[in-house]
Design a protein around this nucleic acid. Structure first.
Lengths: 381, 381
DNA sequence: CTGAAAGCGCTTACAG
DNA sequence: CTGAAAGCGCTTACAG
């Protein structure tokens, strides 16, 4: 209960504390910041005043005076994507340790939105920005850095001179996935990639092609000639979502004349065919999906059509989000250490107490987590 | 490219603009804020100076002077829960419209963490706070309000005098789910609820009991006596996650002696039984899960054990997150308008431009979305 | 060891 | 219509 003597309940300022403790504001500031030498008796008087007033320093004023604020801007592609949210948890943890709060927002992976957001954040005089860049030129980000606000690129392999960056080797990750599929004997692989404009999608395509190229070279070298050459077909989906995965898979099945259930909402699902539909030989024996959400949508569509995973078709995802291991057919996927990534990005931004954070470019390596959704290809005639 | 004449690249202040435009800072401020009358010629000179300097007002200083900041704190239970993240998207939209940025963090639904967070946010001199309260007493929140910082309770039916709140009628929602199940003929229903300490879980239990009670009363009234009385068993899971749903379902199946696949990670899933295992009559014919994530975990475990959904067992979820409609068996669920909820909460906080936001208590009503995961109960002997 | 003073960048009456 | 000045709450040399 505040004493009834102060009806307006105005937030107490350092002046109020000084008056109550009968010292100057400078002294209050000193005990607050452990600066200078304050006599013990005085310190206690000040502390008592602080307690009795419930005084909390005004961080806006501190920020203005010190020229820094505890606000850190975080701009990612999409707030509802588990990859970014698990990373955000890691960032939050690291930021909180330094008393920083994070301002989270999404760029919808649009360079325009990114620029707008960055300008707004800069307007907030943030201490720094964690950005998953949509603009390969990094134009807006450069402006921010020019103003002296550090930017750390999150999930980006770019290595500009003036910004730290942290990334996962997407190329290697995709390569791992395709190698795994080929080692199981798959030669007709379909890649459900994300939008071609997105860097992660581009790199994962390169990685998939790397693995394919290596296999082809090896095979040419052996020149046995009787093995079928592995093939990779790529489709760019409109988004990294389960819905995109499901819809794309449905279209693919329909093109092959395989009946797909129409039930989606508000209708009962027709009984699943008891015998799997005959899959044409041309139908891929394996799908590599650019993230777990796409894999989830693709897998459920397949199963709805009576196609068994992994017996008829194998599936590999990317990310290893929480639900990957919980799917009906636990998903084989390329794991990214999301929490650690977020933590490390924030750590890079905050740097050590003394001096500016050094520019560093960190790269993490993904690992393949083998679960139940991949197996040898079905027998084709 | 900044002119090479300014090597330190210091952020320009209002003084620099004034000097360049040869006016006083007051005048610059006036053109900035459209206040007072500025001669057209002067205004243009000022605007030119602003452009050439790339001047952006320092919001920290503005906040200090005006006594408000554009930062809005948002504290929810869990950043990786899709319910909160879809809501956060809605909040972001509304907040951005007023030039506000959101500081997102999670309380882990712990009153202690909530208190710490709230204090930190208050320290940030935020303009307001959107909080999903973990502490039923709202102690920390009251402190915040006492300091003159508005708090809007998100996803909370509390109706304190000094805080607005917005909620979805969880009780009615749960009631809808149970009614639906009973109307299909289910009389042995299991409720996979969240932790008992969480308000949402408590309300959903009440709602489920309401529906059951009403059915019982109706049946007693008809007194035909030959119908079996509907029964509801409740289990409190440790968390609102897919993993909790899966684990709990596994334990339940094992208790009944139904074999469950051990494969989880790094192992191939044993072939699914071709004939569904015989389910004891005592095994529930329907499960109501306190959120879609739990439903997802429960459903996949069931299917792994060879139990068919909805033929053998029906499942209802809660929330209607994006993947609910995309599941292999599209999930019947109680839909909450998450984006709208978030938007409305932020709107309540920001209020109209003029004057303080009024205290309001908004309640939304959930709707049942019927999909494929529910059907009439299996035949029991 | 402590106080008085300047100043961070801005806004707002108040004179002219 | 415009300028000079006070002040938001704090920190930081600088005297004493």
């Amino acid at each position: 209960m505040p004493p009834s003597t102060t009806p307006p309940a105005k937030t107490p300022s350092i002046k109020d504390v000084a008056r109550l403790a009968q010292v100057s504001v400078g002294t209050v500031s000193n005990v607050l910041n452990g600066r200078g030498f304050v006599r013990n008796e005085v310190r206690q008087r000040v502390e008592a005043a602080i307690d009795s007033l419930g005084y909390v320093p005004n961080p806006t004023a501190q920020a203005l005076r010190r020229g820094v604020s505890p606000l850190v801007g975080v701009a990612v592609y999409d707030l509802t994507n588990p990859f970014f949210m698990e990373a955000a948890s890691g960032m939050e943890r690291r930021l909180a340790a330094d008393g920083c709060v994070m301002a989270l927002s999404s760029t919808k992976s649009s360079p325009t939105t990114e620029a707008t957001l960055l300008r707004a954040l800069m307007g907030q005089a943030v201490r720094g920005i964690l950005l998953t860049p949509s603009d390969p030129e990094l134009s807006a980000a450069r402006e921010v850095v020019q103003r002296g606000i550090p930017v750390v690129l999150f999930d980006s392999p770019a290595q500009p001179e003036d910004m730290s960056s942290i990334s996962v080797d997407d190329r290697t990750g995709a390569s791992l996935a395709i190698q795994h599929l080929m080692s199981l004997g798959h030669t007709n692989i379909m890649f459900f990639n994300g939008p071609a404009s997105i860097r992660q999608a581009q790199d994962r395509l390169h990685g998939a092609e790397d693995a394919l190229g290596a296999a082809l070279a090896m095979q040419a070298h052996r020149s046995s000639g009787d093995e079928p050459a592995p093939q990779l077909h790529t489709l760019n989906l409109p988004a990294f979502t389960a819905e995109a995965g499901r819809t794309t898979m449905r279209a693919l099945l329909e093109k092959e004349g395989i009946p797909t259930p129409v039930a989606q909402d508000n209708a009962s699902l027709p009984g699943r065919p008891t015998t799997p539909p005959a899959l044409p030989d041309s139908f891929p024996t394996a799908f590599f999906c650019a993230n777990d959400l796409i894999a989830f949508g693709a897998m459920t569509m397949l199963r709805d059509a009576g196609i068994r995973v992994p017996d008829d078709v194998s599936i590999v995802g990317f990310d290893d989000i929480a639900i990957a291991a919980q799917m009906s057919v636990p998903l084989t996927t390329v794991r990214q250490p999301m929490e650690e990534l977020g933590w490390a990005a924030a750590d890079l931004l905050l740097g050590d107490k003394t001096g500016k954070p050094r520019i560093q470019h960190l790269k993490f390596f993904p690992t393949l987590v083998t679960r139940a959704s991949t197996a040898a290809p079905r027998h084709t005639s």
